[in-house]
Design a protein around this nucleic acid. Structure first.
Length: 594
RNA sequence: GGACCCGUAGCAUAAUUGGAUAGUGCAUCUGACUACGGAUCAGAAGGUUAGGGGUUCGAGUCCCUUCGGGUUCACCA
């Protein structure tokens, strides 16, 4: 690889010129700015201490050494402390000839190693999936894919929150107001159907509170004493002691929800290696707490509740078991973390969860550490920002929640009308056309969500956000489709045999393209280390822009020199391969025509 | 109040993790071979990177501070 080559020879140069052995991390290489001649640039400021000379002279000396001793370096120029190196055509052609025909170019082979376990999605079974889940799902799936492409062994898991008071609320509402209706009888998707009863509970509950307050009760008391909430709590208790009626209702309603979720996940292209249910895991963690109490790591208060003192870490105390012995969210998470560690012996335990839970995960790690679990450090919270709407955040009470299914349908329709307006569906069967609309609409949505740095809060404007021009999924897809068209036509003009060893002079834009293409696997590595699909999206975008610019300036099929024409077909094909492999990491399909 | 995060052009966002003159898209304005597919390309305009101080060869990036915004500190999950 070019960077390794320059790095090792720079070390030699410093040794030879200044008699000092330097470490690799002192060497900083970057792409040469487009307006300056050169392919790769070495920053020489860090070496001034050794050379005891000015930046220009130091750069000059190193440049002269490199161009004399490294075959691949053709020439160099110095601007201030920046040494710009020109790499020979031969180097780029070799790179091209060796890699352009590898279908999995850019990907590493998966190692047989301890896995990276990544949990994402984690829905509640009382509400349908919304825009926030979309970001979570797409991030989790894509990060898993990127890690795999970087050679990691990955396990995708989902922990479904299928029990608790909120689930009982929808169950109770269905019993009271449902009149035996089902998703089948109403034609409503299962998760939406159940979600509607959750909303209904809330409405009726609020009415009861209002009545009680009118009768002179304090609001807080009314909230605790409204008949409905009491009934819901009763139901939860019955659930916990395995009351057969409650359990069977619970199973029936959850099955409806899962049916609905499956539809949404499938449509989104999201999947998991393993699904856990909180109803199976919510009692885990109690044993850990008991042990901690014995060891004196945890302490008990007068009401028998058990706590962890975090004051030595500048944090508050954290409750782990209530006075009545029941557990809280943290307790369960301690338990599931241990379970997952025992099950997988992972290198990393990752959780894709919104940044409002940063504190929770900090505390989780600290407590596990205090409990003496040396694997606590393997826990990694992939924290992402919320998706906001133009008028603030999504609030179910204000009806501003953007539903996942609705959004996908809307995008599908937009893709359809736009494509039809552009007259691009001529000759396609209905199935083909629908498949195309699906690819384009999901491509637009996924690219839009994933091109933003996961850590950042992002704004989603339903009316304007999803564009098909500029830095978008369809823009990338379009470039891909156009290249496929060239490849199809290349046979007609006798240019189909382009998988040969090429040896042609390179135009500047061709060289730039090759340079960018050569960076693909390093980009994957960077995306994998930073857990950021945005790195991939930005890379693909710059590649596509470069290709489009090349395409505009140079003929491929009409080039008169046949060697050059063959090379350009092959270069186009290689570019489309990288586009395809890159988009696959974002879960985006690329169409052959659009 | 304590802790953590964020602030880049009208809007949305990049910046190789401390490197050169802060890139790109949308919107606005101007242009492009009678198209190898115009969902494209080329160009113009738009910035004191919230304000101030510091660290150094070099700061959007690190430190301090002020202002503005967010999250969290639950016997909810």
């Amino acid at each position: 690889m070019l960077e390794q080559l320059i790095t090792s020879n720079t070390i030699k140069a410093i040794q030879k010129l200044y008699g000092v052995e330097i470490k690799e991390n002192l060497i900083s290489l970057q792409n040469t700015r487009p307006d300056i001649e050169g392919d790769i640039t070495l920053v020489v400021f860090p070496f001034l201490r050794m050379s005891k000379k000015g930046p220009e002279q130091t750069a000059e000396e190193i440049g002269s050494f490199l161009s004399e001793n490294v075959e691949e370096i053709e020439s160099y120029s110095v601007i201030k402390g920046f040494l710009n190196l020109v790499v020979s055509n031969n180097y780029w052609l070799n790179f091209f000839n060796e890699n352009a025909v590898i279908p999995t170019y850019g990907y590493r082979e998966t190692k047989d190693e301890d896995p990276f376990v990544i949990e994402y999605s984690s829905p509640n079974t009382n509400k349908p999936l919304h825009l926030g889940h979309i970001r979570n799902n797409l991030l989790g799936w894509s990060i898993a894919q990127i890690l795999k492409a970087n050679g990691r062994n990955v396990k995708k898991v989902n922990l479904v929150n299928d029990r608790g008071i909120h689930i009982c609320k929808s169950m109770l509402a269905w019993l009271k107001y449902g009149n035996g209706a089902t998703p089948e009888s109403t034609g409503i998707k299962g998760d939406k159907f159940v979600g509607d009863y959750y909303v209904r509970f809330d409405q009726e509950y609020k009415k009861e509170i209002a009545t009680l307050v009118e009768g002179g009760m304090e609001k807080e008391d009314a909230e605790k004493n409204a008949p409905l909430i009491k009934e819901a709590r009763e139901m939860l208790k019955k659930w916990e002691i395995n009351d057969p009626e409650v359990r069977s209702l619970w199973e029936k309603m959850n099955a409806w929800v899962y049916e609905g979720f499956d539809v949404t996940y499938n449509r989104m292209g999201i999947d998991f290696d393993k699904i856990y249910y909180e109803s199976d895991t919510y009692l885990l963690g109690k044993a850990l707490v008991e042990d901690g109490l014995k060891n004196g790591v945890l302490f008990k208060k007068d009401d028998n509740s058990i706590w962890c003192d975090l004051e030595d870490r500048n944090l508050d105390q954290k409750l782990l078991l209530r006075g009545d012995g029941t557990s809280v969210y943290m307790t369960q998470d301690l338990g599931t973390a241990e379970q997952r560690y025992d099950e997988f012996h992972p290198q990393k335990l990752m959780y894709v969860v919104g940044n409002e839970q940063n504190y929770h995960f900090d505390v989780l790690k600290i407590i596990l550490d205090k409990l003496g679990k040396d694997w606590a450090e393997k826990i990694h919270h992939i924290s992402y920002g919320m998706v906001e709407l133009p008028h603030g955040k999504m609030k179910s009470r204000e009806g501003t929640v953007v539903d996942a299914d609705d959004l996908m349908s809307e995008m599908f329709n937009t893709a359809k009308t736009t494509t039809e307006e552009l007259g691009k569906i001529d000759g396609l069967s209905e199935d083909e056309a629908n498949g195309l609309f699906r690819k384009i609409s999901l491509g637009a949505l996924k690219y839009f969500m994933l091109k933003v740095d996961p850590k950042k809060t992002m704004l989603f404007n339903p009316a304007e956000s999803i564009d098909f021009n500029g830095n978008t999924g369809p823009f990338v897809q379009y470039t891909y489709a156009r290249i496929q068209s060239i490849i199809r036509k290349s046979a007609d003009v006798g240019l189909n045999n382009y998988s040969i060893q090429h040896n042609v002079p390179l135009e500047r834009k061709e060289k730039e393209l090759l340079k960018t293409l050569s960076q693909f696997s390093e980009v994957i590595n960077q995306a994998a280390t930073t857990f950021s699909p945005a790195v991939i999206a930005n890379y693909i975008y710059s590649l596509v822009k470069e290709y489009n610019s090349f395409y505009h300036d140079f003929s491929v099929l009409k080039e008169e020199n046949k060697d050059k024409a063959l090379f350009r077909v092959a270069l186009s094909a290689f570019t489309s391969l990288v586009i395809k492999n890159g988009m696959a990491l974002l879960g985006i399909e690329v169409p052959n025509k659009m």
